[in-house]
Amino acid sequence: MSLNKEQIKYLAILSRMDIQDSETKDVVDKLSRIVEFVDQLQAVSTEGTEPMAHPLEQGQRLRIDKVTEDNQREKIQLNANETNNGMYLVPKVID
C-alpha cells in the first residue's frame, strides 16, 4: 500500500509538522516505503497468536506510592520561554 498526498497532509496536521508543498512528494515516497515494509509483515499468518504489547516477556514493575520528587520549578523553568507567577505562558488556547 502506498500513501497519497492527502494522507500526508492529514498526518502533518495531526503531528503538527509543517511540510512544504515542495517536500510533499519526497515525504510521500519515503513514508510509503515504510508502509510497504509493514505490508510485508502483514503477510505472516498470526492466527492463534496473542497480540504482543511489548517485546520483553515480563510484567510491569510497580513502585510504592510515596512522594520522592521535590520542587524543582526554578531550575526547570530556566528552559521556558515565558512564565508568569510560576505558570508557563503559551499562545491563548480556549475551548
Binding site: N84, M87, Y88, L89, V90, P91, K92, V93, I94
Partner: peptide, 15 residues
C-alpha cells in the same frame, strides 16, 4: 490546567 484570564491574551499552564 490552563488559565485564560488576566494574562494579556496568553494562556497560563499549571502542570
Amino acid at each position: 490546567k490552563s488559565v485564560h484570564e488576566g494574562l494579556d491574551g496568553l494562556s497560563g499552564i499549571d502542570l
